[in-house]
């Protein structure tokens, strides 16, 4: 024991303790659930066998069942739209705002800070706020649209199957803009000012500076923001819970919400894990791209 304490005091032992603590945490709370999830997806699990490890092994049958489910196609297409539209608009608006606040004008930093307000709010609260904005009969958005004469009857944002998914996407874009803006602002601030000045003297106009200096130098931050955006969007659960619950009739259902519904509403736990395993595979691929893009960060 005395030897152990001594080895902790002389840093070498301490290093080991710290490493094992971190690894232990990851093992218990990440690796184990991940592997256990994969195991479940290959077994038949019902409420009676939930507590035991010995369950009938069915191979890929669960995967066949899930992918054969008529809902699967809708959910996949919805998920693709949700991720692509959210990330594209979050990025475009976030980058635009980051460039805007990069200009030197009074109060730029304060205004930029205010944008963080949306980000620090819990997504459930954001969902509640948006459910009032989007409410069909008393919602603010309908009121605004009617006042402006853009529409003459209420749009049922959350209960019309044609628009419910886009309502969640709009709320999610709003939620993701601050994160995109802040991360890209940091990237922009890291580009030395005199590089722009040199380009200006070399004859580059504003657009040319953007395309030949800003964009290439922002490759790493943009890659990071896109990858993280995809991952965060695939984790977006609260907004669906608060706004549409995936409805009406799966019109706005996406993989992460469907997985939860299967596991904890209909108790088809194996099917729920199948969906999450498929998502994990995709997220791991995105994460690999992300780590690659951060490795290529520019040095000045």
């Amino acid at each position: 024991m005395a030897r152990f304490i001594r080895s902790v005091r002389d840093a070498r032992g301490l290093d080991a303790v710290l490493v094992w603590l971190a690894l232990g945490y990851l093992g218990v709370f990440s690796a184990f659930p991940l592997v256990y999830n994969i195991v479940i997806s290959l077994q038949t699990v019902d409420l009676f066998s939930l507590a035991s490890f010995e369950r009938p092994f069915v191979g890929l049958q669960n995967y066949r069942d899930v992918l054969g489910d008529p809902v699967a196609g809708t959910v996949l297409w919805n998920t693709i739209q949700f991720v692509v539209l959210s990330v594209v608009f979050q990025l475009a608006i976030g980058f635009g705002l980051a460039l805007f606040f990069q200009q030197d004008f009074p109060g730029a930093t304060y205004l930029r800070g205010l944008f963080l307000a949306g980000w620090i709010m819990p997504a459930l609260v954001v969902g509640a706020v948006w459910s009032w904005i989007l409410a069909g009969d008393f919602g603010v958005l309908n009121y605004v649209l009617r006042s402006l004469g853009i529409t003459d009857r209420n749009i049922f944002w959350l209960s019309d199957p044609n628009v419910s998914l886009y309502s969640v996407i709009i709320a999610n874009i709003w939620l993701g803009i601050p994160f995109n803006m802040i991360l890209l602002s940091v990237g922009l601030a890291a580009i030395p000012r005199d590089v722009y000045e040199a380009a200006e003297l070399d004859g580059a106009g504003a657009w040319q500076r953007f395309f030949t200096i800003t964009l290439p130098l922002m490759r790493a931050p943009l890659g990071a923001v896109i990858s993280l955006g995809i991952i965060f969007t695939l984790q977006q659960f609260d907004l669906f819970a608060a706004l549409t619950q995936g409805g009406p009739s799966n019109a706005s259902n996406v993989a992460q919400y469907w997985s939860w519904q299967l596991s904890f509403q209909t108790y088809q736990i194996s099917y729920g894990s199948v969906v999450s395993v498929l998502m994990i595979v995709f997220v791991v691929a995105v994460a690999a791209v992300y780590t690659r893009s951060t490795r290529h960060e520019q040095s000045y």
Partner: peptide, 10 residues
């Protein structure tokens, strides 16, 4: 010619 050289790093 800048003090920091201001070369285009990419």
């Amino acid at each position: 010619v800048f003090q920091s050289y201001a070369l285009y790093p990419h």
